[in-house]
């Protein structure tokens, strides 16, 4: 295993209580506003996709030490370097030292509302038939993937039931690695709390994930 995500937190103990905050509390410093804006604006250049950016963030070695927008900035810098848009000496100097490279597009102020309204839908048409139907019992993949994936560790090797079929969607695992969209059927899969956490948990509760078809096998 060479790929290690530090972001897969579901079910991990020892993180303490949640600290609620009043509604409207969005930023805790001015630079966080800027971190949001530059990240979205650079995303709009089309140099990388959201799955690649998630992959870069979750593999930052100091992930657990960073606040959310620190993570965004550190992830953005890693992406800029990876795609040769900015060099390390430029970030240190705070000024351009090397010629710019061409990007697919630059988000202009006038185009922001339309770009946000459009988003980046992942639903794709497909000729393949869905392998599973609502009500089917399935087993999730047991092994960890050696790349970015969206099957959380707590839901690996677990028995669940298909609750919804969502059509074919861009497959995050390949998309994040630059291997293309390779759309697959996407399902909502429900697990009982007992299946995930064993005896002693709240027996009435359930947890569901959205899982691509290749994460699933028919339950034996």
């Amino acid at each position: 295993m060479t790929y290690l995500s530090h972001a897969d937190l579901g079910g991990k103990d020892g993180h303490g209580a949640v600290t609620p905050e009043p509604e409207g509390e969005l930023f805790h410093a001015d630079w966080e506003r800027m971190a949001l804006a530059v990240t979205l604006a650079m995303g709009a250049t089309g140099t990388w996709n959201i799955d690649e950016s998630r992959s870069v963030r979750e593999t930052l070695s100091d992930y657990e030490l960073l606040t959310y927008y620190q993570l965004w900035i550190k992830g953005l810098i890693a992406l800029l370097k990876k795609h040769d848009l900015v060099a390390a000496d430029e970030i240190a100097a705070g000024t351009m030292l090397h010629p710019a490279r061409a990007v697919k597009r630059v988000l202009r102020a006038a185009d922001v509302p339309a770009a946000l309204a459009k988003g980046a839908p992942t639903l794709r048409s497909t000729h393949s038939r869905a392998r599973f139907a609502v009500g089917d019992h399935v087993m999730t993949r047991a092994l960890a993937a050696d790349h970015h994936t969206r099957l959380p560790a707590y839901a690996r090797g677990k028995k669940g039931r298909i609750a919804h079929v969502y059509g074919a969607h861009v497959f995050a695992d390949t998309h994040s690695q630059g291997l293309g969209e390779q759309p697959q059927w996407l399902y909502n899969v429900v697990f009982t709390a007992r299946e995930l956490w064993g005896e002693g948990c709240d027996a009435t509760s359930t947890v569901s994930i959205d899982a691509w078809e290749s994460y699933l096998e028919p339950a034996p």
Binding site: G10, P121, T122, R150, L151, P152, A155, Y166, H169, V170, A172, L186, N188, V190, D202, T204, S205, T206, V207, S208, I209, D210, A211, W212
Partner: peptide
């Protein structure tokens, strides 16, 4: 309680 973990783009 039904918990929904947003693991894809829904």
């Amino acid at each position: 309680i039904r918990v929904w973990d947003l693991t894809a783009e829904v």
